[in-house]
């Protein structure tokens, strides 16, 4: 299961850009096409995942990592295993973004949104692969530190458990932020029976208060 970037979801990128309505300006749409092509060429998508048994106290077996918060607990209800994953577009995407910022900030904004959608695409592709790999078990959606009440700080613990620095080149700054910037960590619950998603929609999101998508009457779908 090689990590892949297959393309970017235009709607998702447009949401990141704050573009409302279903018809984006033609120049923005054209730029998204251009940056999708650039990312397909430049980015070096990488991912690492591991499957853990979920202990009764919520700890991942064989580690000291215990996802914190009510929301992740609810998300994993009924699951006896958890996949821990991390994915990145690699350092090249950061360089491209930095470079574009000095050339043309308007294009950099569009690239930033495209890169955000691209790393989600890598995650989606990995999850589809995981679903096949772990079948007939059922997988929940992805849940990342920073969603709901799961503290962003746990990103660091997840990176350590997955040894992301060695495996995919994802490190942490002293402030606990991931480098390269276009990187994602997530948890996925695994169970033998299908179950209702316990995500709880917008209300549980840390961004609830100031989410532009919600204010505009939409949802990011998580």
């Amino acid at each position: 299961m090689e990590p892949r970037l297959t393309g970017i979801d235009r709607q998702e990128a447009l949401r990141y850009l704050g573009v409302r309505g279903d018809r984006p300006p033609a120049d923005v749409a054209a730029s998204l096409d251009k940056w999708e092509a650039a990312l397909l060429k430049t980015a070096r998508p990488r991912a690492v995942w591991r499957l853990f048994d979920l202990m009764p106290d919520g700890t991942l077996a064989g580690t000291t990592f215990r996802p914190a918060g009510e929301d992740i607990r609810r998300h994993l209800t009924g699951c006896d295993r958890v996949v821990l994953m991390a994915a990145t577009l690699g350092a090249e995407a950061d360089v491209l973004l930095r470079r574009t910022q000095v050339e043309d900030m308007a294009q950099a904004v569009i690239l930033d949104a495209a890169a955000g959608a691209a790393v989600e695409n890598v995650c989606d592709d990995l999850c589809a692969g995981l679903a096949a790999e772990l079948a007939p078990a059922f997988l929940t959606g992805r849940f990342s530190p920073g969603y709901g009440d799961m503290p962003l700080e746990q990103q660091g613990e997840m990176c350590r458990v997955l040894d992301t620095a060695r495996r995919i080149g994802v490190g942490l700054t002293p402030g606990g932020l991931m480098t390269p910037m276009k990187s994602v960590t997530a948890l996925i619950g695994v169970s033998d029976t299908p179950r209702e998603e316990g995500g709880g929609g917008c209300k549980n999101c840390a961004q609830y208060e100031n989410c532009g998508i919600r204010k505009a009457g939409g949802s990011c779908g998580r």
């Binding site: 850009l17 573009v19 300006p25 120049d27 923005v28 730029s31 900030m105 308007a106 904004v109 569009i110």
Partner: peptide, 8 residues
């Protein structure tokens, strides 16, 4: 209009 156009 949107952010890229504002910046332009």
């Amino acid at each position: 209009i949107f952010l890229p156009q504002l910046i332009n």
